[in-house]
Design a binder for these strands. Structure first.
Lengths: 360, 360
DNA sequence: CCACGCTACTTAATCGATACAGATGCGTCC
DNA sequence: GGACGCATCTGTATCGATTAAGTAGCGTGG
């Protein structure tokens, strides 16, 4: 009835508990024949190896890494980009013998309690807003933390990309094609579920740093082209999915002077823009150009295929995993420079229908 | 330098370790003022509460539940149906204070080792083949196990649906519309990556019980309609995604006597069928009828909207979570009857173009 | 004034394992 | 033949917490 432990086995076989432990974890510490006997008896008793929790306590490691994602799981996993980097992360961590303890911030207060009570060796913060309580809880857990994308935290390694450059490239591409009226389709600027046009005030208050940087990139290029940033409508999409992207696009186009080109801050939103355009009977790219962000799998298969800012998703996930491994093993880690991004031009962008050629 | 523990705090304040423990876990066991003092000092020292591993060892519970999914994470999460029930599961478990330790069967031998070493209170086996080594490892871990869909294991609670009835309903619907030439688009019958027509021999050897049951359901209806099962081509799709579904559909239609109606065993595959038809210039439902399975979100938004066999995905995930909670807490659990399924008729099915009306 | 009950703590056993410092025995080398 | 090395196993401290049982101290009712 009582649980089988190393001690049970030791008593059964008349050896010490230490030897039984070694039979499982350090084969070189005992003779092959004794080890075989121990393992055989263990199998008979249905003993599957040392208890992970006891082992974890003693060794100071349990072999799991917590991952904090925004919103619910279904939401996080509906985004192919998120899935891709989680996959990279999971692979790398599994390689190192770690499991992935997923934690979706539900926003409830119990979140923090759960994080405090979670038996993990480290935390990966996967793109959370700066003020999210889960972030504080993770940092306060006295375990290594690695951040993906955001938020930047002092002394915490970050695996990010050059967001500003990425967004700037997208904007420059469109401006270079001759567009003068841009629109921006952004993800949430704050976690308050707000949807719609975000004015300057709102833009300045985002708690999602990635949005801040990408807006900055577009703004920079718009200014460089001699245009007014206040003339560029920014629509904030409360969720990063196709439906909401379509909704946001409706809003962008339903204006007095609708944009001829849209910079979307994710492929999800961009695909939503394509759908909205189709519903409205607007030809892409003839009447509207759309640039996405991420180059997630759906970008290439979209109709038309999306011009988008490519970033190494799986690779970054893997890099985050490698950082975690290093930190847990006490190895020093270097500061990672932002991963480069690259514009992939496909068929969703073209010069505006009525090109306004500037003299010169 | 050394870690702050309950003992550190106890020494600091001149109280016993037990009292400090109680300050965190059982507030009624000490005076409010002392508790406040302890908590205050804890905050000062940056002590975030009792160590989860020590706690876990003593209490016999760590607060995490392992989830075993087939293939890699990106694969599992590319299926909206999987995402939906994992979301239900996660919600229910978070409610109970458990985190989700995800474990994607990579097929490597290290999988089993990882499972053995994972600090979890229970396992959820999410639709694995009968012979998957991870299943044995989970069952052998001496922790409660709950199975989603498959495999059926003696003495292990299962949260399933009536697969046979579901598939039968789909087939009956098509046969009732007047179709005489059916085709089946199945998921993998074995985990060997094989793709293409599965003959009777292969069908009989599936290690995925769900496929077995669904094939049985279709077979039953085909027989009831007086047709020969051997005339019904079954194409096995190695991965459950849209691309592979399209590929399988090509194979199904590229035959001497192509089917006029397809039963797909997932919405993913069904959407693939829609795409293949579009590529081939085949009108749906005029020239080809398609029935899906799951009624995952994409089913309703597909073009045309999919007729599909609906099943309560999130609800089942939640039910699995509830079972896990009960088992971990030592409460007895009743055997769950299969969840009912229901055919949702949308626009992807219609009578065959050249209806063969039986006299009578 | 004693017994009783209550609150507020403390004591000590325990969860299951790991790792380091011995202990033991045996062969070998000079 | 004594010293030494080596392989193989044991003894024991320790990881960080929980909890049942025990002990003061204090107020109260008979």
């Amino acid at each position: 009835m009582p649980r089988v432990t190393l001690q049970t086995l030791a008593d059964e076989l008349g050896v010490s508990r230490a030897t039984v432990s070694n039979a499982f974890g350090r084969p070189d510490q005992l003779s092959a024949t004794l080890r075989a006997r121990i393992l055989a008896r263990a199998a008979e008793l249905g003993f599957g190896g040392p208890d992970p929790v006891g082992r974890g306590l003693r060794r100071g490691r349990v072999g799991s890494v917590g991952v904090l994602v925004d919103q619910g799981l279904s939401y996080a996993f509906s985004d192919p980009a998120t899935v891709l980097y989680l996959d990279g992360l999971a692979r790398e961590l599994q390689e190192g013998g770690f499991g992935l303890l997923l934690h979706a911030g539900t926003g409830a207060r119990t979140d923090v309690e759960l994080i405090r009570r979670a038996a993990v060796d480290a935390w990966v913060v996967a793109s959370l807003p700066r003020d999210h309580p889960a972030v504080k809880a993770a940092v306060g857990s006295h375990r290594p933390v690695v951040v993906l994308d955001q938020p930047r935290l002092p002394g915490v390694p970050l695996v990010g990309i050059d967001d500003e450059a990425g967004a700037a490239t997208a904007a420059r591409h469109l401006l270079g094609l001759g567009h003068h009226r841009l629109g921006v389709l952004a993800m949430a600027l704050q976690a308050d579920g707000r949807q719609g046009i975000a004015d300057g005030r709102r833009q300045a208050r985002t708690t999602y740093e990635v949005m801040d940087r990408r807006l900055g990139g577009v703004r920079r290029e718009v200014a460089a082209a001699g245009l007014a940033w206040t003339d560029v409508p920014v629509v904030e999409c409360a969720s990063n999915d196709v439906d909401t992207g379509a909704l946001g696009t409706w809003e962008l186009l339903d204006r007095a002077d609708p944009p001829t080109a849209v910079v979307a801050f994710s492929d999800q939103l961009a695909v939503g823009a394509l759908r909205a355009a189709q519903e409205l009977g607007i030809g892409i790219p003839r009447e509207l150009s759309v640039v996405g962000f991420d180059d997630a799998p759906p970008a290439a298969t979209a109709q038309p295929p999306l011009t988008t800012v490519a970033q190494p998703l799986a690779e970054r996930g893997q890099a985050a995993g490698a950082l975690v491994r290093a930190l847990v093993e006490g190895r020093p880690v270097a500061v990672l420079p932002p991963y480069p991004v690259e514009l992939v031009v496909r068929a969703s962008t073209a010069p505006p229908a009525v090109a306004v050629v500037t003299p010169g």
